[in-house]
Amino acid sequence: MAWSIHTYANPTRFMNFSAIVLPYVWALAGAGIGIGLYLSFFVAPPDYQQGDSVRIMFVHVPSAWLSQFGYGIMVVSSIVALIFRHPLADVAAKSAAPIGAVFTFLALVAGGLWGKPMWGTYWVWDARTTSTLVLLFIYLGYMALWAMIEDPNRAARVAAVLAIVGAVNLPIIRFSVDWWNTLHQPASVFRLDGPTIHSSLLWPLFVVALGFTFFFIGVLMVRMRAEILRRKVRTLQMQQAAA
């Protein structure tokens, strides 16, 4: 049989495939997060400037990474859904949105809890925080659109257009927010993250981020399975109502 993109894109095949793979994904997620937590509390040294508060980075940075990763998955799936009319792509896009939104929220919360001891306030309107907030709004709008259109096929294509329009606009929004920020705050703000992270902190961070990513993939698979079944329930109900 020819091995094409459709091999795993068939919903039934995906159900079988994900059932086999899921335990390994969860194991990798658990191992990554578990080892990462150990490393971040017992191995990683306190930062010479920020002391122990730097450990919040191990929540903040992976969450921020997944907030971008989730949108990336949404956009790629949306493009595939629109162009190839793939039965699985819009399921993936819909399932990725709430997970991405949750990690965007976590990035904001952890950032606030990091900001309080560092900046003296939970919330600052700095460029990164503000564009993360706008990203959260776009996630929520996308989810609202899905929730408000009943027919899943129509909702899928409309939501795909929104995700792609959002992807086109996000760089513009990010640029404008950066620009706005330098306008109102001369560049004296203490940078939380950035290239100055010491290497002894970097590799524990990498382990946690990897664990978080596998967690994301695990939840994504579970949600996709549930979504495929939800559509099956919908067709079964409609068949029985018609009969």
Binding site: F137, G141, A144, M148, I149, V165, N169, I173, S176, V177
Partner: peptide, 23 residues
């Protein structure tokens, strides 16, 4: 255009469009 045919579409439009108005 995205919220055509959606009940209570007016509210949805605001949620969808306002983030894009930021720049």
């Amino acid at each position: 255009a995205l919220s055509v045919g959606v009940r209570r579409g007016g509210l949805l439009i605001s949620l969808l469009v306002l983030p894009f108005y930021v720049p």
